[in-house]
């Protein structure tokens, strides 16, 4: 009888927390695919410069440079560079900024009239002893500070829901997980 009650409670727990987990996963997926999360991420300019679609200039080299046209547009769809000032909201579709400093240095990019010539789209950098390809992507952007709290809340809620769902599952299928007797026997 007690075991049956335990299994029933486990089943209810599993159903409730599975529903909660699925709701959280769906919400996270929807926020991402609808572009809401992306717009929170690429929120404001952290530096003066030109907002670009950085993935389009990734392959640029000295031998095969990629040229961006400077334009004032609300949405960047191709090889365009939109002038932005520090603290301004970023146009839709951009994912990196070529800073004024980069242009002044002229090592990776050069300003030529109404265009920007990218001559080194990717450079090799190192983090914690591991090398990785570093591009203009994520450079000079400021993330909405509230997205940090949102991410944290989401991660904790998801962890809790999935953890309790798993607990409900083991109770439901009758896997008995009891408290460990830490101090029994010689130790």
């Amino acid at each position: 009888m007690a075991e049956e009650k335990h299994t029933t409670r486990g089943t209810i727990k599993f159903i409730v927390w599975t529903a909660a987990s699925l709701a959280l996963i769906y919400y996270c997926w929807w926020s991402y695919s609808s572009g809401q999360m992306v717009s929170w991420y690429y929120y404001k300019a952290k530096t003066d410069g030109f907002a670009i679609r950085a993935n389009l200039v990734r392959e640029a080299t000295k031998e095969k440079p990629i040229v961006l046209e400077i334009a004032q547009v609300q949405e960047v769809t191709g090889l365009q560079a939109v002038p932005v000032k520090k603290g301004e909201r970023l146009p839709v579709g951009v994912n990196g900024i070529i800073s004024k400093k980069d242009l002044e240095e002229g090592k990776r990019v050069k300003l030529e009239g109404n265009t920007i010539k990218v001559i080194q789209g990717t450079q090799i950098r190192e983090a914690k002893g591991f090398k990785f390809k570093d591009t203009f992507m994520h450079k000079g952007i400021e993330t909405n500070p509230w997205s940090g709290a949102w991410n944290l809340g989401m991660v904790i809620a998801m962890g809790l829901a999935l953890g309790l769902m798993a607990e409900g599952f083991t109770d439901m299928v009758g896997i008995k997980i009891s408290k460990i007797k830490h101090f029994e026997g010689a130790h």
Partner: peptide, 13 residues
């Protein structure tokens, strides 16, 4: 997680 997210280092998906 909070610090990294605020610094723009997290892809939540």
């Amino acid at each position: 997680a909070l610090r990294q997210s605020m610094s723009g280092n997290v892809d939540m998906l």
